[in-house]
Design a protein around this nucleic acid. Structure first.
Length: 450
RNA sequence: GUGGCUGUAGCUCAGCCGGUUAGAGCACUGGAUUGUGGUUCCAGGGGUCGGGGGUUCGAGUCCCCUCAGCCACCCCA
């Protein structure tokens, strides 16, 4: 082919290829998320990547609409790629609730698309792992959401992280009292930046964009000075929202959530009441969560969510309150990569069989089949190269055990079981069903678990 | 979407005021070692210098456009 005709292989901005060393930890993470979600009784769902545009538009606020990938399909329909998994879930719930009943406990692990500018841990195509409880107003579901986030991060292998919790009603109550309720979104957006830009600039922004007075801004920022134990924080918030029924209810809910979380046995320091977190998305109405890694806070929240009691009302008359959260799989992976938590292996098969004796292909195939039948992943090298080269390949790919059998071994009906990590090996009898070999392999895998 | 920085081998980078055949380390392939990997030694392959256009006798180097990455804003997982 002429060089000028050749197409440059490339990927779009914010879209990535996933080679094995990326996919293996990625799939492990997905497995972990599945396991934790299932352990709380959540069951899997999926929805289409493409939705009618009207389903997606106007749910997360102006900014999210700008980031939506939208176009006309072949039939002239206005369509869009899903921006998150919460909006499709709300549609799903509204559409199927009569058949499924409540409460609905679902998890949804899938790709979403946002046409925004890229940055580290921030892509245009990325995967979210959502779990949601639909159809109950009970605070038990809010508490459980925090517990799932906690268990999930522990299961992934984190010990130093902080789940920040707030309730939007607290903020709404305060804004009502200050007669700023109609500016809620802009005020909350500004407040959300508190940890990043500091109180002075938040105040400036509130005055500029939300038309707040200096006194109003000062009142709101009193929240930011609140700190201490859960009880201390709650005591300080109470008087600020006392005149507002909404605010008082928010404080009560907040207390119920932290009490429940504590009762479930979660270490206090991992859960922080932070009245400044507001979440950008417009649809949150109650409890909100953000989760930060203490060792890498600058990457942003890696698991966020909250209660959205009115989202499904856009699709159904029926009241369908929901609460849930979303693990940002790709952002978390970027963080783990940076923290050196991602082991670089190119294979998940523990056992490697070198193609040693060129005349014994069938014996190797049989051996591999017997080991696979025992539930152990095994790779047979495809060509009878020099043994040293094959072992080098096995070492590089991250196999853990090599089963070496050449003419000598076949003559004595044995097989060398070699532990690649410790460079030790043992001769094991090779039976037709490979029982002794399988036993030896299992023993090594047990002694040196991953 | 706006602004800034960056782009040379698979990776990390060097390459002077534009000058002839574009370098290093690591990685890769082969050999030393015709049956044993992660150490060592030797050899080799691999680049139209992100892409396109311009200035120039001459461009990796200067200018413009474009694509991509990073950073800030914005927003968020």
């Amino acid at each position: 082919m002429n060089q000028s005709e050749r197409i440059t292989p490339r990927t779009l901005k914010g879209f990535r290829d996933y080679p094995p060393e990326v996919m293996i930890p990625r799939e492990r993470l997905i497995d972990t998320a599945r396991r934790v979600y299932c352990s709380y009784g959540f069951s899997p769902i999926d929805t289409p990547a493409l939705e009618y545009l009207e389903i997606l538009v106007g749910k997360g606020g102006e900014e999210t609409d700008k980031q939506l990938y939208k176009f006309q399909d072949h039939g002239g329909r206005s369509v869009g790629l899903r921006f998150d998994l919460t909006v499709p879930l709300a549609r799903f719930a509204a559409q199927h609730i009569n058949r499924l009943g409540t409460p609905l406990k679902h998890y949804h692990i899938a790709t979403v698309w946002r046409g925004e500018n890229t940055q580290r841990g921030r892509y245009r195509e990325f995967m979210q792992c959502d779990f949601d409880t639909i159809g109950t107003l009970s605070t038990a579901a809010d508490i459980e959401t925090a517990l799932v986030i906690h268990d999930l991060l522990c299961a992934i292998g984190f010990s130093e992280f902080t789940i920040r919790i707030n309730n939007r009603m607290v903020l709404t109550g305060l804004l009502e009292r200050l007669d700023l309720a109609d500016q809620a979104t802009t005020v909350l957006r500004a407040l959300d930046k508190l940890s990043k830009i500091g109180p002075d600039r938040v105040a400036e922004e509130m005055i500029a964009t939300a038309k707040a007075t200096e006194e109003q801004a000062r009142q709101i920022l009193r929240l930011s000075k609140i700190s201490g134990t859960h009880d201390q924080v709650l005591k300080q918030i109470e008087p600020l929202v006392a005149q507002s029924a909404t605010g008082a209810a928010g404080v009560t809910k907040l207390k119920e959530v932290v009490d429940g979380v504590q009762a479930a046995g979660i270490p206090q320091q991992r859960v922080v009441l932070d009245v400044s977190i507001a979440r950008g998305l417009d649809y949150y109405t109650g409890t909100v969560f953000e989760t930060f890694l203490d060792t890498l806070p600058e990457i942003g929240s890696i698991c966020s969510g909250g209660r959205y009691d009115d989202l499904a009302e856009l699709y159904t008359k029926r009241k369908l309150p929901g609460v849930g959260a979303s693990l940002g799989l790709d952002r978390l992976l970027a963080a783990m990569e940076e923290l050196g938590m991602v082991e670089k292996v190119a294979t998940s098969a523990e056992v490697f069989i070198p193609y040693f004796d060129p005349d014994r292909l069938h014996d190797y195939l049989k051996l591999a089949a017997a080991i696979r039948a025992a539930g152990i992943d095994v790779e047979l090298f495809p060509e009878p190269k020099k043994l040293g080269q094959q072992l080098k390949y096995a070492d590089r790919r991250g196999h853990r055990i090599a089963l070496i059998a050449g003419p000598d071994e076949f003559n004595t009906a044995t097989c060398q079981v070699k532990n690649l990590a410790t460079a030790t090996q043992q001769d094991v009898p090779m039976e037709p069903d490979a029982a002794s070999i399988i036993a030896a392999v299992k023993e090594i895998l047990q002694q040196h678990p991953k």
